[in-house]
Design a protein around this nucleic acid. Structure first.
Lengths: 230, 230
DNA sequence: CTCCTTTTTTAAGTGCGCTTAAAATACTAA
DNA sequence: TTAGTATTTTAAGCGCACTTAAAAAAGGAG
């Protein structure tokens, strides 16, 4: 059986759910996630089972086979690379990035995704800080992070995660080029208002305490000279 | 009625056909182009007519309304920008570019297309030399072109168009670096087999009559020193 | 103009993913 | 254990884009 948009979505959501639980996934959960009726879910599960993507236990739930997991993981990979590419290369606004990727992930080929990954410099995390599965299937771990509000002045960091998901806030960060994987230096910390002064690409930026509490950064281990590995 | 992949394709093909003819388009032509049965075409034409995208004359053929023409032209715009973006930014091979764009054109939003256009520097022509409709609907004209087979020995030309779209042939051209915007000089023309000898980047290449008839070139008006306007 | 061929449309039916409603099964609380 | 509730599956049916086969219309040669 050939996979299409709908079945790819089923496998993607199952994969995401099974990252957080090992019990079989119930019909209702998928029905909620995919915004279709439980009957539609049962229908697709039976088809996916008959072509070996899932192990389906009637009335009990469903687990992915290796074959299905591979597809699901690849959909997650596509989605996250697309999100990053849309954000960083094509300047798509934060609030539009997700739904845009949601449509493209079913139309884009693996070779194009691989090219995007190269263009992005083999990133480990998407704009939300979620890990991007590599082509061989490994999923990167988060580096140990610190809130930017608690970072040390004078040190170099990389943004590894943004906690808030409000569209306005994220667009604000986007304007500052304060997105995931971005390198920055903490210049100063003002005790009186708990604001943080950082420099991003030689640009000095003042961040409120609120902002600094939403951004998780990781110390940059090795200082690499600019343009060292073009 | 909402447009989907299928209807977008119908309108795109109608737009392309109506660039070359003003008579109503016959059912059979669309049936051939879209690789579906004539009955399927009639079916869709009736739906497109009832929502105002086309003027449908039973048994006679079909013309686009302004509304339909706008959609068709926009699909062409999407397709051609995608082809160029895939080729130039994402290094997709020439033979893969078309089918890749064919799928993406239905999934990508206009805002992303506009961003790609900016990234590409508002290009006028796609990798095949076909004009890219601008956002306001204007379609750039070709510089006056000549078939390479009819070009004058000793003169300098720029490739402005490739007529064939066979994958093998385009890959062959790719190996020769004989793609759009490429500059070349016509060295010699052999009457006995109508082959053409050209030099591309100081490399001498022999082209068969067949090849020379597929390539449209435009005389290079001003000789610009290499690296003059990086 | 008429016959005959080609083209186009209509009619009937298919596969897919969905829906709602009814039947089957699982879960829970006494 | 059982009764009642919640969940899941089955059944029937829908819309969509397609198919094939039959009917209708158009077009060309004599």
């Amino acid at each position: 059986m050939d996979l299409n948009k709908s079945k790819e979505d089923y496998l993607k959501h199952m994969f995401l759910l099974l990252e957080k639980q090992s019990d079989p996934i119930k019909t209702t959960i998928l029905s909620d996630r995919l915004q279709v009726s439980p009957a539609a879910v049962t229908d697709q599960l039976q088809k996916l089972a008959s072509s070996g993507y899932i192990n389906y236990f009637k009335y009990k739930g469903v687990l992915l086979t290796d074959k299905g997991s591979k597809v699901g993981k690849n959909m997650v990979r596509r989605h996250r690379i697309l999100e990053l590419f849309l954000q960083q290369i094509l300047s798509v606004s934060w609030d539009a990035v997700h739904q845009e990727a949601e449509r493209l992930e079913h139309a884009v080929s693996d070779t194009v995704i691989d090219q995007m990954e190269i263009k992005l410099g083999y990133p480990k995390f998407d704009p939300h800080g979620d890990p991007i599965p590599s082509i061989d299937g490994t999923i990167p771990n988060h580096d140990q992070g610190v809130l930017l509000a608690h970072a040390t002045s004078g040190r170099s960091y990389t943004v590894v995660r943004v906690l808030s998901d409000g569209a306005d806030f994220l667009n604000y960060l986007n304007e500052l080029k304060l997105f995931i994987n971005q390198k920055l230096e903490v210049r100063d910390y003002h005790e009186f208002d708990r604001s943080v002064e950082v420099s991003i690409q030689k640009r000095k930026v003042m961040l409120s305490q609120y902002t600094a509490l939403q951004i998780v950064v990781s110390p940059t281990k090795f200082q690499i000279k600019k343009g060292a590995n073009k």
